[in-house]
Design a binder for these strands. Structure first.
Lengths: 185, 185
DNA sequence: CTGAATTTTCAGTAAATTCTGAAATTACAG
DNA sequence: CTGTAATTTCAGAATTTACTGAAAATTCAG
């Protein structure tokens, strides 16, 4: 890997995280390199930075495009494709959230609804039915909230988050539930 | 797999999702079986339901315990371990969020802070430094919000979500940003 | 068109992860 | 203690996923 030591740490960390975020290591690393770069980079520059094969970078960039996490641009008089990440970090976060919702929660909601349409849904034991319905309601609640919040911009977000936290504190006149799920390892 | 057809669909779906959620297929399936079961189950019952090896179930249950997603109990006069999921779905969701935060965002915050402590941080190019600092701020913002919201219960949450969404609509007197990140595939 | 530059595809391989069965360990009733 | 039930560990096998290099396809200047 051919990068200043500090940036390399960042890139390696994002590689590890990428793996936990449904991409893979290389994809995470490509993203990290682009994220730290002021100007858009072409595939060969990424190859040089990461020391992986050209084809791997090509596939990684395709993956990032499918996540809409990366922008393709062209430079005058150059035939190569150049890639960059949005300047606005908040937009990046929202895209990530949108994509993960689409990949992780929407399909579940679809399955849950399908199950409830199933002809022998009512044969299923009542407890399982209750669980399925409860889960459906919970996901729908979040989905509706997400739809409402989707386009909020970052300045407004800071206000809303503060507001939400304050509201929570105000509403919370009863003593809090004992918090037993704090981890200590 | 030895389960009523409808429950089997549910279990298989959660297996696929489990894989996207940093567990693996079997772990997701074990969780799904427990989630749909009114009473706690022992390992052999899970083996029977899923048709995987006893040792695989053992490892899966250990993993679920490390996520604190599963409770171990004992039944009078029985030496086996029995496992169940919390009755309260909201608690399950919060545990998931807590755990994913601990696995996906906290380590990143640590790395970002470390980078900024690094002796040659100031040698790093200004753009990259800006990105790192911006990312740090964003994660800290969410972390603080999360801390405030962590122990809210579900009835209160419904109010807060509604409130948040309403607040967002009220604040949003300016026209919304053009939403260009909706995917259509 | 032609051909050089660039990107993409893909079959095969490498690497990583998951799963199993057998053996080891633990837990506890008698 | 002893013996049996139950759980865990772990080395190797099976499966899945990631990566590469070579070949194919695409793009576009001339």
């Amino acid at each position: 890997m051919n990068l200043p030591a500090l940036q390399q740490k960042f890139v390696i960390h994002f590689g590890e995280m990428g793996a936990r975020w449904g991409m893979n290591r290389t994809v995470g690393q490509i993203y990290a390199v682009l994220f730290l770069s002021e100007n858009a980079l072409c595939a060969d520059e990424i190859v040089a930075a990461l020391g992986v094969s050209r084809s791997n970078v090509s596939m990684g960039l395709k993956e990032l495009q499918s996540w809409q996490l990366v922008q393709l641009e062209h430079q005058p008089g150059d035939r190569k494709d150049f890639f960059s990440t949005p300047d606005d970090l908040w937009q990046i976060v929202m895209t990530l959230v949108e994509q993960r919702k689409a990949r992780e929660v929407d399909p579940t909601l679809t399955v849950l609804r399908d199950l409830q349409m199933d002809s022998d849904y009512n044969e299923t034991n009542a407890f399982a039915r209750g669980r399925i319905e409860e889960a459906t309601r919970m996901i729908e609640l979040f989905s509706r909230w997400y739809e409402d919040m989707r386009d909020v911009d970052i300045e407004r977000l800071e206000r809303l988050l503060t507001m939400g936290a304050a509201a929570q504190k105000v509403l919370n006149f009863k003593p809090r539930k004992k918090t037993k799920k704090r981890k200590e390892n």
